[in-house]
């Protein structure tokens, strides 16, 4: 029997303790959204703001993104950046982003306070919007056994979890955070795994068929760069896409540049993607971005027995090698 895991009162109490600390400047968590069953990121700087914090299965965002996407405008003379710690709420998948960021030395373990949330699956907002197109909300989502219970506008409805759960959760390998300072609930044991059936199925098709599949998807892309910006692993000071000299891919939107964009985005995440699925969630054009990321994930696991974001002591995949690495295609 899987139940709602997080006790909101306990969460608020811990959050209050954390944000009261002298050496903490910010706590990033979740709060109610503005419509339907949405939840949104909360940025708590004062004890008085702790009351809005909450965790429900609608908390889909990977907050690890916010540890690396802060902007550094020039400071007024005589001022310095606030370098105190940031506390962040993370689910199992999100915690792996923190580990991978630390592997890449984006920051040190001591710079963050991690509030871990063992998670038994979040909803897919697109599926929920489709299921409840008329829910004004903001509503509540609860997990009860094999169901999610949705309540909004005075109505409550129970939906089997399988219908609205996010796809990534049906393949989740790490429901309990792999790194944390405080765990907000008892650990959740692994309940799923990725079999890569769909990836293997696509691999087996002929080149023409594969390209026809991707051409249709890529031609839809409007290059809003939502998938790049939401990604916790995309945090270069200057992205290769924004550079004008050399201009790797042009701003113009056509099948050639769109494909180049998707190749570079996916390749830059080879051995780094931690499978949080945010890129695909945010894509307004419904491009199966995770099918590319999972292809790399699968290859990396098969060829190099490497799983990104699972060990802070590991080195980045492409900065190490073994003399025995696979080379069957090299003449």
């Amino acid at each position: 029997m899987v139940e709602q895991l997080i006790d909101t009162d306990k969460l608020k109490k811990i959050a209050e303790e954390v944000i009261s600390r002298e050496d903490v400047r910010l706590l990033i968590g979740y709060r109610k959204g503005t419509f339907g069953f949405r939840m949104r990121p909360a940025f708590v700087e004062e004890v008085s703001e702790v009351g809005e914090l909450e965790f429900t299965p609608a908390c889909v965002n990977n907050l690890a993104t916010y540890l690396t996407n802060y902007e550094r405008p020039p400071l007024p003379r005589g001022t310095t950046n606030d370098t105190r710690k940031v506390a962040v709420m993370v689910k199992g998948c999100d915690s792996r982003a923190l580990l991978q960021q630390m592997v890449e030395l984006a920051y040190k373990r001591d710079d963050v306070i991690i509030l871990g949330i063992p998670c038994n699956g979040v909803i897919d907002p697109a599926k929920v919007d489709k299921r409840f197109p008329e829910a004004k909300g903001p509503g509540d989502v609860k997990r009860e056994g094999d169901n999610f219970t949705f309540s909004a506008d005075g109505k409550t409805e129970t939906v089997p979890a399988a219908e609205v759960i996010a796809d990534k959760c049906t393949r989740c390998r790490y429901p309990t955070p792999l790194v944390y300072d405080e765990l907000l609930a008892p650990e959740v044991e692994r309940f799923a795994d990725d079999t890569y059936e769909d990836i293997a199925g696509l691999e087996k098709r002929g080149s023409d068929e594969k390209w026809a599949y991707w051409e249709e998807k890529f031609s839809r892309c409007v290059r809003c760069y939502g998938c790049r910006n939401v990604c916790p692993m995309c945090y270069c000071d200057e992205c290769v896409l924004d550079r004008l000299s050399p201009q790797w891919m042009r701003r113009s939107v056509d099948i050639s540049e769109n494909t180049a964009y998707h190749i570079s985005r996916a390749y830059h995440l080879a051995g780094r993607c931690i499978q949080c699925g945010e890129c695909q969630r945010v894509c307004p054009m419904d491009i199966p971005i995770m099918e590319m990321n999972r292809k790399f994930y699968k290859d990396v696991a098969e060829f190099y027995e490497y799983e990104p974001g699972t060990d802070a002591e590991e080195k980045p995949l492409l900065s190490i090698f073994s003399v025995d690495d696979k080379e069957d295609f090299i003449l």
């Binding site: 949104r40 990121p41 996407n69 290059r223 809003c224 760069y225 939502g226 910006n229 939401v230 307004p284």
Partner: peptide, 12 residues
């Protein structure tokens, strides 16, 4: 605070 700086809101 939560903005990611993507172009969803403007492109669409």
């Amino acid at each position: 605070a939560a903005c990611l700086g993507c172009g969803v809101c403007t492109y669409l």
